[in-house]
């Protein structure tokens, strides 16, 4: 086959090669030709660029709530521990910290911070500030925020603490035991994105609930507790 005839045949294949749909034998034949033909190689590059650009024209669509968290959960087992955690004293070499372990650590830190907030109401402000800074430093945190958790009628049911750190988390202390049952929880950001959180199973002596979060604390708009499809408690930040 002459060179021109060869080029004509290969150029017929280029759209399918650029779109990634060419059969294996056709692709192999074309690749061999591209190695020796600058013009056809250039033709392929231009067509492939066009195909790439067409993919970027597709309209964006917000994925379902919680998508980001579900993806990260799939990647987490293969992730390295974050560098800040390496600074903690360890008796054994550093190893990946699972989300469950991180949650246990966060809950323990939350209990300490919640206790600190209660103490704040009875102690001098200067001592509190020192303790707050120390607690944040120990937990490698950057800040703590709080909002009242209210029923639909406006009665205060408890307090939601939001902690910015690694990981960031929410911790709720209830003033009295909530009505027993299953509660779905959701974080709604100020721009309206919804992130379902760990469910809350209210039962005997359930005076607290917590969950790690994947958004910045300053992005939080509301925290919702929903029971049987009805939002029964809301905290507004």
């Amino acid at each position: 086959m002459s060179e021109d005839a060869d080029c004509a045949e290969i150029r017929d294949l280029i759209p399918e090669i650029a779109a990634g749909v060419a059969a294996g034998d056709e692709r192999a034949r074309a690749l061999a030709h591209f190695g020796a033909c600058h013009e056809c190689r250039h033709e392929l590059a231009m067509t492939a660029d066009l195909v790439d650009e067409m993919l970027t024209l597709v309209p964006v669509q917000e994925p379902p709530a919680g998508f980001e968290g579900r993806v990260i959960a799939r990647l987490a087992p293969e992730a390295k521990p974050r560098s800040r955690r390496v600074r903690l004293p360890r008796r054994r070499p550093a190893r990946p910290v699972g989300r469950a372990a991180a949650w246990v650590a966060a809950t323990a830190a939350a209990a300490g911070l919640a206790a600190g907030v209660v103490w704040w109401q009875t102690a001098q402000d200067r001592a509190l500030a020192a303790s707050y800074r120390h607690t944040l430093e120990v937990a490698h945190g950057r800040g703590l925020s709080a909002a009242p958790l209210k029923s639909g009628l406006g009665a205060e049911q408890g307090t939601v603490f939001a902690y910015q750190g690694e990981p960031s988390w929410l911790y709720v202390t209830f003033r009295s035991m909530p009505q027993p049952g299953h509660y779905d929880t959701c974080l709604v950001t100020k721009d309206g994105r919804r992130f379902p959180l760990r469910a809350f199973e209210a039962g005997q002596n359930a005076y607290a609930w917590g969950s790690t979060i994947n958004v910045q604390v300053q992005e939080i708009g509301t925290i919702e507790f929903t029971r049987s499809g009805v939002t029964v408690m809301t905290a507004r930040f």
Binding site: L55, V58, V60, Q61, E62, P63, F67, E68, V71
Partner: peptide, 8 residues
């Protein structure tokens, strides 16, 4: 990239 990937 989540909105772009999900959109496609």
């Amino acid at each position: 990239y989540q909105a772009r990937v999900f959109g496609l």
